[in-house]
Simulated assay, not measured.
Amino acid sequence: MTIEVSAAVLSKALTPMVSKVINGLAARFADRKMKWNAVNSVNNLTSIILNINTVKTMWSRDKGVNLTEFYYPPRLVSKSSGRATQGVEKVVAGRCVIEGIVGQGKSILMRNLCNEILSRGNIPIFIELRMVSSERALTDLILDYLDSSGIKGGKDVLDFLATEGLVTLVLDGFDEVPDNMVTSTIYAIQNYQKKYTDLPIIVSSRPHYDVQRLGGFQNYAIEEFEAHDYEPFMKKLIGDVI
């Protein structure tokens, strides 16, 4: 079950996760003068997750709205078997690419998956791939995220977190990676997959991009709405308007 998205609930959920991370880092880097503050990290991550959950809609262009107020979960269909998923347990625990056309809510789904990841005891690292550039490659963005979270220490700390499976990479919008950065970004994702066997990785993209051809990744497609979806979907939207 997805956790409630509020500062108090997020802080309570994050506290044991961050404590586990900080204790593990302290033991791993005991020979170095590296210190982390669990309280600061919980506060920083709470703010980051709240920000991930705050989006602007066509009905609230001037202010952000918590996505849980209007989120309607889409169905995901395995591209290999053609079967719809039952829940998102396999999605958030493995390596997968989620594809969908414009307007199907890929980014909203990816943001909500961060809540699912938290509810299962992992810390999500949510990266908007449109921010990849020749100055800031994928690994740089991940390190920036950890730094903002108060989990400092650079690549050595990332290596520890990924090796121990304490974090999950949520990489949104591969189709927005600049053309000159596609090859290096694919390489980085593939390298994370090969190097860290316990690191879950979720990528979203429009159809027909190189990321769908990554070996070892399960491909899912967002299924189009059926007739019975429209009423509950509209109720969510009307609630947002009200």
Rank of each mutant, 00 (worst) to 15 (best):
K106L: 04
N40R: 10
A38R: 14
G105R: 06
V42N: 09
V21H: 03
N44R: 11
V92G: 01
S41F: 07
I52E: 07
N112F: 10
L67R: 09
S6D: 15
S80R: 06
E4Y: 06
G94K: 01
I108D: 03
V91Y: 10
A13L: 06
K79N: 03
V55M: 11
N44I: 04
K12Q: 12
K12L: 14
N40M: 12
M58V: 05
F29R: 00
R83N: 10
G82T: 00
S47D: 13
P74G: 13
G100K: 07
V102A: 13
A8P: 00
Q104H: 07
C96M: 06
A38V: 12
I52V: 15
K90W: 07
T68Q: 12
R61V: 15
A8T: 13
L14T: 03
L50I: 02
P73K: 06
V91F: 14
I52W: 11
E99A: 01
S19V: 10
S78R: 00
M34D: 15
N23M: 03
M17K: 06
E69P: 09
T68R: 02
T46H: 08
N37V: 01
T68G: 02
L67K: 07
W36T: 09
G100V: 00
R32Y: 11
N51E: 14
V9F: 14
L25K: 11
A26F: 08
F70Q: 01
R28A: 15
L10H: 03
T54M: 13
K90H: 12
G94N: 01
G64S: 04
W36N: 13
I101C: 01
T46Q: 13
N53G: 15
N112R: 02
I22V: 15
I22D: 07
V39D: 13
G24H: 08
R95E: 04
V42I: 06
V39M: 12
N40P: 04
L113T: 00
V42S: 08
P16N: 06
F29C: 06
Q86E: 14
R83V: 10
W36L: 13
N112H: 06
A38E: 12
